[in-house]
């Protein structure tokens, strides 16, 4: 099980990084979202993996999953929605303003014209 979760984190991270390195806003935003999953799952996993023991107190149960990472990740999920929305809005505004959804600056700099166009 540990191997599955760890490899899922690794794969999400790899996919996220690859998409984050793309040149257009939309794949970059999706890449960041994938990275967000990876980070959230990783934070959650810092409480170690426990099955069938939700942190809801019951009289006759003494084993519970670690609640603290869950609380932190819960707010992280909601905040990441806010962040995604802002990034999407910025990307959209840039596209609508310039008809160009490149992530990198397209204006050639005086001393470095070739950069950013790769």
């Amino acid at each position: 099980m540990e191997l599955l979760v760890a490899s899922a984190i690794g794969i999400l991270t790899a996919g996220g990084i690859y998409l984050m390195l793309r040149l257009r806003t939309f794949p970059v935003i999706l890449g960041i979202s994938l990275l967000t999953y990876a980070v959230n799952v990783f934070l959650f996993a810092s409480g170690r993996l426990t099955t069938a023991a939700p942190p809801i107190l019951r009289d006759d149960i003494s084993l519970y999953a670690d609640p603290l990472p869950q609380a932190l990740v819960l707010t992280a999920i909601v905040i990441s929605f806010g962040m995604t929305a802002v990034v999407v809005m910025i990307g959209l505004g840039a596209f609508l303003g310039s008809d160009d959804d490149h992530v990198d600056d397209q204006t050639a700099l005086d001393d470095d014209p070739a950069e950013g166009a790769s």
Binding site: E2, L3, V5, A6, S7, I9, G10, T13, A14, G15
Partner: peptide, 9 residues
Amino acid sequence: GLAAFGLAY
């Protein structure tokens, strides 16, 4: 990805 995997594992 490998680094994240290693760390998490």
